[in-house]
Design a protein around this nucleic acid. Sequence first.
DNA 1: TAAACACCCTGCCCTAAGGGCAGAGTCAAG
DNA 2: CTTGACTCTGCCCTTAGGGCAGGGTGTTTA
Lengths: 275, 275
Amino acid sequence: MAFYKISAFSRLGQVSVKALRLYDQRGLLTPARVDPETSYRYYKVEQLHRLHRILALKAMGLSLEQIGQLLNDNLSPEQMQAMLKVKQAELKQQLVEGQRRLQTITAHLKHVKEEHTMPNYDVILKAVEPVSHVLSIRETIPAYTAVGTLLTELVDHLAQQQAQPQGPAASIWHDIEYKEQDVDAEAIIVVSNAVTGTDRIQIKTLPALEQVAAVIHRGPYSTLNQAYGAIIHWIEESGFQVTGPNREIYLQGGAEQDNVNYVTELQFPVAKVVA
Amino acid sequence: MAFYKISAFSRLGQVSVKALRLYDQRGLLTPARVDPETSYRYYKVEQLHRLHRILALKAMGLSLEQIGQLLNDNLSPEQMQAMLKVKQAELKQQLVEGQRRLQTITAHLKHVKEEHTMPNYDVILKAVEPVSHVLSIRETIPAYTAVGTLLTELVDHLAQQQAQPQGPAASIWHDIEYKEQDVDAEAIIVVSNAVTGTDRIQIKTLPALEQVAAVIHRGPYSTLNQAYGAIIHWIEESGFQVTGPNREIYLQGGAEQDNVNYVTELQFPVAKVVA
DNA sequence: TAAACACCCTGCCCTAAGGGCAGAGTCAAG
DNA sequence: CTTGACTCTGCCCTTAGGGCAGGGTGTTTA
């Protein structure tokens, strides 16, 4: 019977006045009466029911627009189900995301506590696009460092064809476990479409990687093992698992062994361990 | 050595150009060189390291401003720790929130599947402020419905003092378990400061409730049990526990038993069950 | 050498759900 | 009739960029 003015109603419903005005504007909760002269909004107690429904849906994470659809466009039960299911999947996804955030920050915190500095290596997760038209040699070589000769071979091949590399050189290590010798290695250089291969030197496309853990290393190759240590540690600690050969990208590099300005990116394809 | 233009660098770092410009503007990642004539931004590979750190911190949920503090205002390890701890607590909180959302939506989804409608009662969680200056009678009464006589007693007392109620009437049920008879009940009416009490009728302040599950019932008191059923069910299903006496607020009510326009709010103080 | 094309710059408007404020009008009590 | 408490609309603000317009650059090709 009685009409409530907006602030009285907002107290009843524990919502801010500003929110009520917004819900009115978006068509979620129109006041029972609006004075045409003064534009004052007057609500009835019965509307608390609707307000509660709005708040309940909001507490599930639905947007005002979605709530409007549910409340106004009176959908079929199937449509409601579909909508809620989509949202449910979204929420599950967000939970996983949140757990990852928490794990990452906890690891960082631990590092700061123990070492009193931020970690030297920042591992990030990302996706890697496929890379088309790369020159590749794959071979079992006696030791990691020998990949240099494979790369020189590629560079020489390029020089013969008067072509330039189109991107940084890289190598791919196909052994999943760590090996000191007889390493299954692949040397890579991105080239333009015009370049041709040979029996030994193939033209191929590097597959995309859905999710990699990546780290940037600055300094000579002799200290790369620190970066490897950090990334492997991170992967284990974060509940991931290596799912394929890892890549080493020489963003800034060359033939010298000890250049402190070299920059290398390490990429390990990973997936969440299913517990 | 080589400088990269913004889009080349953005490809290296897997970040959008727009983001790089933003990071520049916010002082997170200033290009190695900016041409003073053209304002072109030129980056060096070494800066990937810093970019990775930014992305890593972002992946933990820190805001750009916080990242800026961590990177630029070189804080003491203690300050870093404090900052990360705050964020960690925030993330934990968000996780709990997310789990609640998910539970709620799952319950709704189940209801839609089984009944092909949205639930009739929308339970929401909220905080309740303390209510000062209320008139109260507490007594053991033979049955729920007898609370009406207590309320009439309060209303009569008000009338004697020529005063008006300042808000809706309510009752509080102090028995935590369900009882059919000999119920420990309290009748409540909010009044202005001027009103005085008696031996039997006390003036008191209702305590705040940190977290209540609340539901709005529309219809006669005889159907209130449906609302009770719904809210109790919700509380159990959502992993909460009733922690105190529940309140019944007669937002729109009166002495008749069967008025379909009555509106009543039920409030149960709750807390998350510690598993 | 000029045009074509790819790239870069700044600046403006947009997002979701309101919060804060200004200026003007309205309601209820004394 | 005045005062104080409310209410109205309208504008700007928040995050982390996305999208676009208009104008300037850099490199390559005819």
